[in-house]
Simulated scan of single mutants.
Amino acid sequence: MTEPAPELGRHTDMRRIWLIALLLTAVACGGGNSVTTGQPADPEQPVSTPVGTPAGSGTPSAGPSMTVPVGNTLNPRKIPWTTARPAGGDLEITWVSGVEPCNSLDRVDVAYAAAEVTVTLWEGTTDEDAICIEIAIEKKTIVKLTEPVGDRKIVDGAK
C-alpha cells in the first residue's frame, strides 16, 4: 500500500480542527429556544430585565434617564417619542433610544398650530468613530414651551 501524500494528511488534520472548533462553538452557544432554566422559551415572557434596570439589580431604576439637547450632532434624524406629559407650562417627553455618544439628543422642534402642537425630537451622534452597544434606554427631556398647549392635541413630528 502507498502512504498518503503529506499534504493530504495536513488538510485532513486541519478539517478535523475546524470541525472540533465548530462543534465547540455550537455547544457553547446553547440550544436555541431555551433560557438559563433549561425550559423552553415562552414568547409571552420577557427574556431580559426591563429597560432602565441596572445590571444585576433585578429592579428597575428610578425611571427614564434625563437628557438635554447637545446640538451640532452628526447625521441628525427624527426620533419618535412614546409619551408627552404636561409639566407645569412645559412638556415632559419620553422615548426609547440607544446609548450616547451614538444616540445623542440634538434638538427638539416645536410647531404651534390652532388645533395641535407638534413636537419633533432629533438625534444624532457626537462621535462618528464611537463603538456603542445596541441596548434600549428610556430617556426623557423637558421641552420649554413658548405657548400653552391648552386644548390642543400634542403630535409627534417623527410619525
Rank of each mutant, 00 (worst) to 15 (best):
R85S: 10
R15V: 06
V35C: 10
P40C: 00
A21G: 14
K144V: 13
K144N: 07
V119N: 02
I131F: 08
I133P: 09
W81Y: 12
V68F: 05
A5E: 15
A62E: 04
V99L: 15
E147P: 03
S48C: 02
R15Q: 10
Q45V: 11
N103L: 01
L22F: 13
D127V: 10
S57R: 06
G31Y: 14
G150I: 04
R152H: 02
C132P: 11
E123M: 07
D129Y: 09
R10H: 09
D13W: 06
D151Q: 11
A115C: 00
T94G: 06
T125H: 06
P101N: 10
Q45M: 12
S57Q: 07
D42C: 04
N103M: 05
P60Q: 14
G52E: 06
L8T: 15
I142Q: 00
Y112C: 04
E3S: 15
A115F: 05
G88H: 03
Q45N: 08
M66K: 10
R107Q: 07
A62K: 02
I79N: 05
A84W: 12
D127E: 12
T82F: 07
K153T: 14
I142A: 00
P4T: 15
N103H: 14
D109L: 13
T53F: 04
E138A: 15
G56C: 11
T118R: 13
I17L: 15
N33T: 10
W95F: 12
L145R: 02
E116N: 06
T120F: 13
A113H: 13
N75S: 13
S97K: 02
A136V: 03
P46T: 12
Q45F: 09
G98S: 05
P4M: 15
T120I: 09
T73P: 01
A111I: 10
L74G: 03
D106W: 03
P40G: 09
G52S: 11
L145D: 04
W81L: 08
S104H: 09
R152Y: 05
T36I: 11
L23E: 05
I133N: 10
T118C: 06
V99Y: 11
P43V: 09
L145A: 02
D109H: 06
D90L: 00
T49C: 08
V117N: 05
G89C: 03
N33P: 13
V119A: 02
P76F: 10
V117G: 09
V47M: 11
P40I: 04
L19H: 00
T59L: 09
G30I: 06
E44K: 10
G71N: 15
I154W: 00
I17G: 07
T141N: 01
I154R: 04
I154H: 03
E123G: 03
P46K: 10
W81M: 03
E92C: 05
K139E: 03
E128S: 13
V155N: 06
Q45D: 08
C132L: 12
V70W: 09
R152S: 09
Q45W: 08
T146P: 01
E44C: 02
V35E: 11
P86D: 08
G98T: 05
T67F: 00
M14T: 15
C102K: 00
D13V: 11
G98P: 10
D129G: 12
T12M: 08
P69R: 04
P69K: 07
A113W: 05
T25Q: 07
I133H: 00
P86L: 12
T120W: 13
G63M: 14
M14W: 15
V110D: 01
E116L: 03
A5Y: 08
T126G: 07
T37R: 00
A130R: 07
A87E: 11
G71D: 04
G31S: 15
